[in-house]
Design a protein around this nucleic acid. Sequence first.
DNA 1: GCAAGGTC
Length: 874
Amino acid sequence: MPAGPVVLNVAEKPSVAKEASRALSRNQATYSRGAGGTACWDFSHTVQGTTCQMVFTSVAGHLMSTDFKEPFNKWKSCAPLELFHKPIERYVPANKKVLEANLKAEARRAQWLILWLDCDREGEHICFEVMEVCCGVNRNLRVLRAQFSTLLVGELERALATLRPPNKSEADAVDARQEIDLRSGASFTRFLTLSLQQKFDWSSNLGPTSDKPVISYGPCQFPTLGFIVKRQWEIYAHVAERFWYIHVSHRDGTTGQMCDFEWDRKRLFDRFAAELFFEPCKEDGALATVESVGEKPTYKYPPYPLSTIEFAKKASSFLRIGSQDAMKVAEDLYQAGYISYPRTETDRFSPDFDLRALVGNQTAHPQWGGYASRLLDPGSGLWRDPGNGGHDDKAHPPIHPTKFTAGEPGWDVKKKKVYEFVVRHFLACCSDRAVGSESVIRIDVAGEKFTTRGTAVKARNWLDVYPYRSWSQASLPGLREGEQFKPEVSLKSGFTRPPEKLKETDLIAKMEQHGIGTDATMAQHIETTLKRGYATRDNQTMQFSPMPLGEALVFAYKEMGLDVLWQPLLRAETESQVSNIACGQVSKGIVIEDAIGKTQAQFLKALPQLLVLERSIGHFFKRVDGNPGPSEPPTDARDVLRTMCPLCAQRVVLARNSSTDGRLFRCSQHPHCNHKIALPRATVSVTVRPEKCPRCPREAGVSLVDLRFRRSGIPPGFSVMMQGQCLYCSPAIKELFEACQINNSNEAHNTGPVSRARGSGVSRRSGPSSMPPPPTTRAPPQPQHNNGPPKRRQAFQGSRYAGESTRGSTWQDSNASHTFVTATGQSFGLQNHSRQTLRPSSSGRSGGGSGVCYNCGEGGHFASNCPHPKKRRR
DNA sequence: GCAAGGTC
């Protein structure tokens, strides 16, 4: 080794130390084992005109941890509130002592220290951790920071030529983040755990939770749970609404294939309106006229190069491997040299990346080798440079295969799947887009417009190597513009559906959108919600559901007015403030003081609400400390009918019927008490007023309610709004209930008094959490999510189709006068006309929606089954 | 027994 200053080079991980040494030394670096066996690479190199003895070694992520100083790191050393101000220390944990020893040994004999930590905020912080150790044993070290974005030799040489001091502001930003997270996490976690752990029977929380669960809070794990619970509550809150649409189909005379046309109006929530449009379409002689036949090229683009977040999402949705599991497998593959570093934000390849060599490595594979060969063949025209996803962490390339294997004997299924996916994704990235042709046929039937689309795939290209995506083809009938045919027309109906449970890919997307966690930690936060028994993941659908504990905690935070703790905004604010430190705009101390002050304020808000907390948890779990806990379910105040159940003297609460999905008020002791007041299925909203009924003789008085109904679901003549009504004595309510044939006589058997119900294992988990998902609904031809009432429906409210004149009739929603055909082919409708008493509207208008036939103007039937000759109306 | 962020 030639003489010269000794330069200690430190990277963030061993692989970087090795690769940088190999590149800078032109493969001349020699390996040696430093203190504790840590890898060191020695070579000679010229740095800023001086020939130096380079020693390249590494740490493994953060060298130091942060915790409360003794004795406050012990759980019962102080009140949780005091953790907002108790002293914090940074120290090298036991598992990093070996690395520390190596750094000390090398630093003692070095003159320079060059920091090759990853060029991000955390890397900058690790720089200062390394400096603290190295400068602690050698005060004369000259410390410099290398800034690099790849491990290519040119980039590394450039970094050596542009060495700079490390950035204290960025490191301070990490300091602040660490302190804020530690203080808020530890204080709330100790508070929750110490307050609740011994008081409840947690055995009903099936999952990894022990008898004595740690009930943690964290600024990332809790918003993650919040996303899951919020979606579940949206599902509970969904009220299925019925809609109608005209379905047109045509059988191709040549191929015999059926072709479906979609109505331009999509769907209507007013049956009468839908029927009005439908009638002319189904009349004898109604022909479809082809208005236009169009064709245009269409493309499917290959995915961008693979970043960690996309990898986690795709592993979950394509491979059915959970994100944390997938990351673990990817880490193993990386360690064994089969794929590149799996923690990367980058989704673009740098222009000097030798993509073709990597593709060439794969040509021998029995499954995708042929495709790789074709990709390299210029004659195939298959090659296309990868797209640019717009992200670059300046530290790592996108995830790609680095070593060929046709499969290793020891690999399990997950490892095989992940390696195959990384290779196929990489090959797809380097491939040309898929090309197709989309045909669109628009037709007119009696003034209504319908459209059908078909796709012909011309060149699959990247899809050939990417079985995780498909492109379905659909051919259209050979119709020409102006051509007419007799369509098959039917009026179908369906119900809006609640949103789906969150899939892992949706959850990761939400976390990404709100800045919850980093690409490398999102999977860990998800895993934490599972490990803590807050949520579960279905391994088939990869959908998340809250566990009782998770739902109980979010509910409790909501009850205590601490929504900010489970919603994502707080984290975004912290990140924003921390970024201001990194930019040098504000000092670390100010940000910490501000953030800690705000979190402490939340804590102080929670502290006096221990009873609220316990009562909230008590809705989901049985107490074991002798305290009977609350008996009422977790209902919103506005959902409680302020009266006593006439059978058992308990509260009467708003609920949902599990079989019909209709709403009802029922006794809070259900199913042990059967008192109930069912509401019409068309009930859209229920508001309990603070005022009591002035006439009702009931002892405790009865709250008045405001009810709103769907126009199409209640008999004509009844208003869609009924305000200030008493459900027990209002004549208008009685009349409506009779018209809807709702029997609320409450003669059902009462199984016993309250004390018996309490002592017989009544689950207190009710309210939103006990509501079953809505029943399976019929599939209409377009997306089913209930995105709120369409404008179209609004337009019909208050129109002449909203009948007003047959008050007192026995018209009923379920007595459809029309035969409907569902999407599943089932037909249903009114057979027994005698159950209807329909009268002409008072205005005498024909075609009104108040029980009058659109065709003949008479009552007693609708136009679709009118016995009279057809009349043309418009 | 607690957070989140690196990496093994």
